[in-house]
Amino acid sequence: MARLEVSELNFYFGFTQILNEISFELNKNEIVSIVGPSGGGKTTLLKLCGGLLDVTEGTIANSFKSSAFAFQDARLLPWKTTIENIMLPIVSKYGYKEAYSMACDMALKFGLEEKDFEKYPKDLSGGMRQRVNFARALVTKPELLFLDEPFSALDIGLKRELQDFVLQNSISEGMAVLFITHDIMEAIRLSDRILLLKSDPGEVIKTYEIAQPKSLRDDEFVFEQTRKFLNDKDILEIFEIKAR
């Protein structure tokens, strides 16, 4: 079965150690979250997994056939319209016409309206840009999706909407998701497993499994779990939350 397997990964920028002995695995159908404070090396870890940085120590074995990224900042090409941005990753594979209609379908699915299709990113709101960002990632039908804090800057409604979309895709298509966040509630709502990453250097100090099926996690459950998490002394420590 397709999986991503990271073992004993170390990483340095110059002489600064960023990641230390990271090991975890991610299987088809699973959502794994990496939670930690900013500057802890989460983005670096994601880039290594996605092949944007070269692994120097340790191994990353990835047997998923395709992967896609959604970044925190939408990273749209400013000189391309909504639809052209969405079709960017598939246009050379399917040809212009086919890719165009696939991109339109995906845009509609993500709540973009036809009047926005020919707009440039400068004329889109932050929320719409993030919709485009997700549509662009999912139009490739990836087996593995990398999310780098993509919900951080969104309002609650849109956040929910996009999270549900990822969740549905993961359940119906078996898409695996490696999800980076510093929001514990978000992680609890979406993941099968949560890795707690401390910083300086980045190190997994705890792994939580959440057994409750994702479709059965209501707000009640999420709040309850979050409360428990916030009483965990490891979490208090790495986020430097002062106990009152």
Partner: peptide, 8 residues
């Protein structure tokens, strides 16, 4: 980076 992430 974004372009690379889609293996273009």
């Amino acid at each position: 980076d974004m372009m690379d992430s889609f293996h273009l």
